[in-house]
Write a protein that binds this DNA or RNA. Structure first.
Lengths: 222, 222
DNA sequence: TAGATTGTTAATCGATTAACAATC
DNA sequence: TAGATTGTTAATCGATTAACAATC
């Protein structure tokens, strides 16, 4: 297994996105400079990020198809990973209905909820089962990934249930920091936090623009 | 305006989350060491991250309430920011229904869709209007933030419309890299990418564990 | 006071950028 | 061949960690 640095790995899905768009437009090769412009990073960084995959050709650039192939390989997008989702509220149902996950190798096998009203229905072909069946099904189907889309108050208890049942990776959408054993991988997805950062950037950008205008910067770039 | 480094800003929502939980439990002060343990970072880093806000007290730690106050201030969580959402599909509706945004200062004024079938309804008290009304309403209500929850194919066109109408910050949930003028702030939220990174981490963790077991590591920590 | 804890400076680490030789 | 572009080494930059004086 190739050991890539964390920053590179975080960028891989962005390369993937861009390369897929290029492939859709029939592009066969792309230079580090072109990719760099699209990602808004330095061309050297692109070359460094992609050097390990050996799909670069002197003089012509990176072969789009095989670069995509390599990224899919390292991110494990080919082999399907089965997951259970807990919390069939609006966010949970949105994830259940989302078609784009299969491409990234995620298959949500079933959803669970304690609310009897939510149990029984089906969203995007995924059934909502009573939470009482969760642990048993995790064991029987050997599910290793859990998706948490319950309200903040319930998240820790759900995470505990997941860990007890044998889940080893948790994708957490609840705005709380989950306390889990070291051997369990957690990825937090805090949507509201993402918004806070957008509005911080906006505020900062407006401030910079203001001060540039004040100092007579003409805003022309080359 | 205080200038914080990018990495610190990215961590602020996590401090916020943790501090809020501590406050809820009635905790008045917290040390850098305690915070560090909860965030899984180094205590020095916590001290550096929080030093600018002047809420630390020698010998007792950081005052929970005023630290929260400062973070809310710098992230602009107090002043409400109005936004329009475009794309009332399942993800769009999930965001419309989400109660947690108001706390972070986000108010979605209205949603828009080209699909006549989606127009007219209301989710979480937010109306879905026809896309034809979008530009005019952006101008009249002086909306500066746009949320993109349309499918990938439509995202660039929607972003263009937003920019033309006067939107200066875009929160993009479509898995495409948007091409916008330099003066427009974009934050990309690629859910599927988040999953790819979780499964990469999981794979890596399993590999490490395997090799540790092979080399006789007993896994006991202190 | 003694001890605990911050704020900050210096040292280290890791990631990005610059430069350029290799090469197709 | 000449020119374009990669891969990689060295230089720079920025962020994290270590150490410790200030202090309540």
């Amino acid at each position: 297994m190739i050991r890539l640095n964390a920053a590179t790995v975080e960028r891989l899905p962005r390369y993937f996105q861009i390369l897929r768009a290029l492939r859709a437009r029939g592009r066969e090769y792309v230079s580090s400079e072109h990719l760099a412009r699209l990602l808004k990073v330095d061309p050297s960084l692109v070359r460094k990020d992609l050097a390990w995959m050996d799909s670069g050709l002197q003089k012509v650039g990176y072969h789009v198809a095989s670069t995509l192939e390599k990224i899919e390989g390292v991110l494990g997008m080919h082999n399907t990973k089965e997951a259970f989702l807990v919390g069939a509220g609006s966010l949970g149902r949105a994830l259940m209905g989302y078609r784009g996950f299969s491409e990234y190798g995620l298959k949500i096998l079933a959803a669970f909820d304690i609310d009897e009203w939510k149990v029984g229905g089906t969203v995007g072909g995924i059934e909502v089962l009573p939470m009482s069946k969760f642990a048993d099904l995790v064991r029987r189907l050997n599910v290793r990934i859990g998706i948490v889309t319950v309200p903040a108050e319930a998240a820790q208890a759900v995470a505990d249930e997941m860990v007890t049942a044998g889940v080893v990776a948790i994708w957490n959408f609840a705005p709380v920091t989950l306390d889990v054993p070291d051997n369990v991988v957690v990825r937090n997805e805090n949507l509201a936090a993402g918004f806070a950062l957008l509005s911080y950037e906006l505020e900062r950008a407006l401030n910079i623009r203001r001060s540039e205008t004040a100092s007579g910067d003409d805003g022309i770039e080359n």
